[in-house]
Amino acid sequence: MGRPRRHLQPVPAHPPGDADALLRAVAQGDSDAFAGLYDLISPTVVGIARRVVRDPDQADEVAQEVLLEVWRLAPTYDPAKGSCRTWISTIAHRRSVDRVRSEQAERNRRVRDAERTGAADPDPVAGSVADDDERRQVAAALDHLTDLQRQTIKLAYYGGYTYAQVAEILDLPLGTVKTRIRDGMIRLRDALEVAS
């Protein structure tokens, strides 16, 4: 008798680090591929939910819904419209925002709090960082923006506020907020392109 025999592992049909290839297999009902995809994308999904929703229990609930949604909707994913990671991050962000906006009273309270504390930059929540390179790259790209562009984008994306709420918090005209967000996102796109 030699060493205990290990169960033979099937050779993976798709490279383990390739989210797009995994998603194509998931789209055909391959739940093993989904397990591989889970390992790649769950840090982002949980990270977005925790940053926007804040309450860790509620955030993890949202993350669970999002990950199941990725499985359910995988057959409808259209690569022509964007990468797998973009698609999944978009779902995660939309669901997180839906959760924080679902109650009018909650929404008003958050805006009042933000106005009072001048919380122009929603702080990151607790949790160990999963993707340090990405975090550094995005932080560097955000440095290319004007203060106002950066503030409006962070409040809208991480704070989950509508642009009208952002305008209220920063005491700016609606039109200014709309254009700052767009100009800032264009700069962010360009800065990220240069960095990658």
Binding site: P43, T44, V46, G47, I48, R50, R51, G82, S83, R85, T86, S89, T90, A92, H93, P124, G127, S128, V129, A130, D131, E134, R135, Q137, V138, A139, A141, I153, Y157, Y158, L188, L192
Partner: peptide, 9 residues
């Protein structure tokens, strides 16, 4: 989506 990935935990 990069803003989201930067928040990964």
């Amino acid at each position: 989506a990069h803003l989201g990935q930067a928040a990964a935990v």
